Structure formats: structure tokens, C-alpha cells
Amino acid sequence: MGMKNYPPEFKRDAVALYESRPGATIAGIAADLGISAETLRNWIRAARAERGEPGR
């Protein structure tokens, strides 16, 4: 399966949705959005790195 290109706004919104829901799981949010958990996990890591947050 080929890689999909998602608009930057979608990526930002997906990360914001995950971060705004305490107790939410990456897998749950990803399933709601129709993307893989690994894709969302990568976007979260990238967003945290952009903000200079330490990795978890």
C-alpha cells in the first residue's frame, strides 16, 4: 500500500485532538480519524519535537 499525503492542517488537528483528550489512546483517536496508529504516533512525536518537548 502506498503512502498517503495528509494536509498539514489535518495533521495538526489530529495531534491537537489527541492532546486535548486526557486518557485517550493513540489507537482510538487514529481509528476515529481513519489513519494508522503509527502514523498518528509519528505526527505526535514530530509536533513535540517542533515544540522542543522532550521525548516520552
Rank of each mutant, 00 (worst) to 15 (best):
L40M: 09
Y18P: 00
P8C: 14
R56N: 14
A14R: 09
T25F: 10
E19W: 02
E53I: 05
M1K: 11
R48I: 06
G2V: 04
G34R: 01
G52C: 15
G2Q: 08
I29Y: 02
G28A: 11
R51T: 09
W43T: 06
V15F: 09
I44T: 04
P22M: 08
A14G: 06
P22G: 00
P7S: 13
Y6W: 14
W43Q: 03
W43C: 02
P22L: 04
R51G: 00
A47W: 09
E19A: 12
N42G: 15
T25I: 07
G34L: 09
N5T: 11
R41G: 00
L33H: 13
G2M: 06
P7M: 00
R12W: 08
R21I: 05
V15G: 07
Y6P: 04
T25C: 06
A14Y: 02
L17S: 00
T39F: 05
R41P: 10
E38W: 08
S36G: 14
E53K: 06
K11D: 06
A47V: 09
N5P: 10
E53R: 05
G55P: 05
F10C: 10
V15K: 06
D32T: 13
S20N: 13
R56I: 07
G28D: 03
Y6L: 10
S36Q: 10
T25L: 04
M3G: 10
A16Y: 00
V15E: 03
L17Y: 00
I29R: 02
P7H: 08
A46Y: 11
A24D: 07
R12Q: 09
T39A: 14
L40P: 01
M1S: 11
N5M: 13
T39G: 01
K4W: 08
N5L: 11
P54Y: 07
D13H: 07
S20E: 11
I35G: 05
D13A: 14
E9Y: 07
P54R: 11
